[in-house]
Design a protein around this nucleic acid. Structure first.
Lengths: 326, 326
DNA sequence: ATGAAAGCGCTAACAG
DNA sequence: CTGTTAGCGCTTTCAT
């Protein structure tokens, strides 16, 4: 390649990575040769030499979860604009296996790592710290992140939903939740607030709950509502840990002739693209997914370029989108 | 690392990549040192030296599409078991931009590339061929793949649905389709079969059709059915290009008091995890997603290990899952 | 503005 | 079974 254009390899490198430092005429000649040969630089070699792989590793439960779609989309785009590629590693919804993914990730020497949720395993935290790679945890909140953090409080979401339903006059709130850790914390946030509001007692604070396997499905939502109505016929509201579960609960309510929201109010989580179009339309908790992706990317880019990050913990909050179901 | 264990670097390499060729005692010593130091090999260097990056690039429309979830899951797992990592590049649902993704992908020198759909751009085909990387196209069929192929015929799906509905006595079939290329071909397969069956004329073969933006949503499905019923009140069946659209159509039918399937039969595509639990449950086209992922991975692994592939074109077919909606 | 030399951390190839 | 040597294709550093 270099010889074809009659220049030294380093000049080709400059054309690709710092075109401003190359004379116009040389630039033209080299680019010409690149086009003619279809030359594509070897990033393995480049990364090895420069210690900058231009690779970002994102660790996610499932790549297919619609809840995270906007976040990973914005993340990928923001990084792409800055010259980074994002790769996704899946952990599944189990409770620990992010550990196992870590070594293969570190082995590629990414310039940044984005985690879904906060990393609990101390072993993993150490390894990450030792690797010296900028890390951004997301979709959750903790005062002690490994490095940086962009997220929101699941407990506060639960509390906000409890207060919302309380304000609407609901007193017998139930929960349908998927068995993943963050969903469970939304549920316990709701429970705690229910105690505070006096609609559950501190002694027996367990609200009627149906636990479904993660990820939540329409079928689980149906089963959940069926089970709750059987065991607790008097419930007047259900907080579902995802919109899909809530849709299932609505379907089941309809099948049983239980009017929503008149008899039972439904609140979902995620504000997925179907939430506005169900019948009744779905009241749900919305999180600014794109903002999380964008901010996480920006923090890591700052750090990767050697600049220091002013505020490494960002709480993006959430909002309750009021629609017809509650 | 090597010096810490008192061996040559190549011995460490062997412990990691070919432990059988190392004496037990040496193995122990080296592994010990690895554990103590938390050493993680540099795959950039390894890949550069060996010309095997152990990286697989998968090019997908959106990582979040539930239709592909099982496929990418099985793909990732099969590759992981063989020591490869999979990275995903997103193209969006536009009609050409896979080209742009290709160079960054080739730059990382993956050991294999998995494509969603078949690659149409001749420029891109050439580039891929020139790169000499095993390529597997998926989720579609063509007699002339770039290299290898695991998929099925979208035209035949359309035809099969037409025949299915015809056999059930439906004669006025309509279509709600997302504006993506493969969905449109399912629709035209249905149209062609409708002509053959005599329920559309060759002169005016256009069945009543509603085109929605990709990806299809519940809201689009509602709008689609509303529009179709307005323009063609006599339709007695609708083929939707995805289960989400079909669910939307069911919701809209219900809102209008149109009984499904008595007045209008609905057929979806994808057999997503909610299809069995809707009311009525959804008749849909099912594709063996995991098989596609597994097979694509196996083909590429064969090729990457220098073995030749006996049959590089695999048609996994599809089936119509009969449920209550049709 | 361009180049020469050295080296990133690993593995192929060949010894021994 | 283990080591030596060379080199993968770039970029860093220092010259010019």
């Amino acid at each position: 390649m270099a010889k074809l254009a009659g220049v030294a390899p380093i000049t080709v490198s400059r054309v690709l990575n710092a075109p401003d430092s190359v004379a116009k005429e040389t630039l033209r000649r080299v680019r010409d040769a690149i086009d003619r040969t279809g030359y594509v630089p070897n990033l393995l070699a480049g990364g090895l030499a420069s210690s900058r792989s231009r690779l970002i590793a994102a660790v996610v439960p499932t790549i297919a979860s619609p809840v995270f779609q906007d976040t990973w989309g914005a993340l990928t785009e923001t990084f792409a604009n800055a010259g980074y590629q994002v790769t996704f590693g899946q952990t599944g919804y189990g409770d620990a296996p992010e550990d196992a993914l870590l070594d293969p990730i570190i082995a590629r020497r990414p310039d940044g790592i984005v985690l879904t949720g906060i990393m609990r395993s101390p072993r993993a935290r150490l390894r990450l710290l030792a690797a010296g790679i900028p890390v951004c945890e997301t979709w959750d909140l903790t005062p002690t992140p490994i490095d940086m953090l962009v997220g929101f409080s699941h407990e506060r979401i639960g509390a906000a939903v409890a207060e919302y339903l309380y304000a609407k006059g609901r007193r017998r709130i139930a929960v349908i939740t998927a068995a993943d850790e963050r969903a469970r914390r939304r549920a316990s946030g709701l429970t705690a607030a229910a105690v505070r509001l006096g609609i559950a007692t501190a002694l027996a604070p367990q609200l009627p709950t149906f636990m479904a396997p993660a990820p939540g499905t329409l079928g689980s939502g149906r089963k959940g509502l069926a089970d709750l109505l059987e065991r607790h016929p008097a419930i007047d509201a259900v907080f579902c840990s995802s919109d899909m579960l809530a849709l299932g609960a609505i379907v089941e309510a309809q099948a049983r002739g239980v009017p929503v929201p008149d008899a039972v109010a439904m609140v979902g989580y995620g504000d997925l693209n179907f939430a506005a179009d169900t019948i009744p339309s779905l009241t749900t908790v919305s999180v600014d997914g794109p903002a999380i992706g964008r901010l996480a990317a920006r923090l890591i880019i700052e750090r990767a370029q050697g600049r220091s990050v002013a505020d490494p913990i960002v709480d993006v909050g959430f909002s309750i989108i009021q629609r017809a179901s509650a």
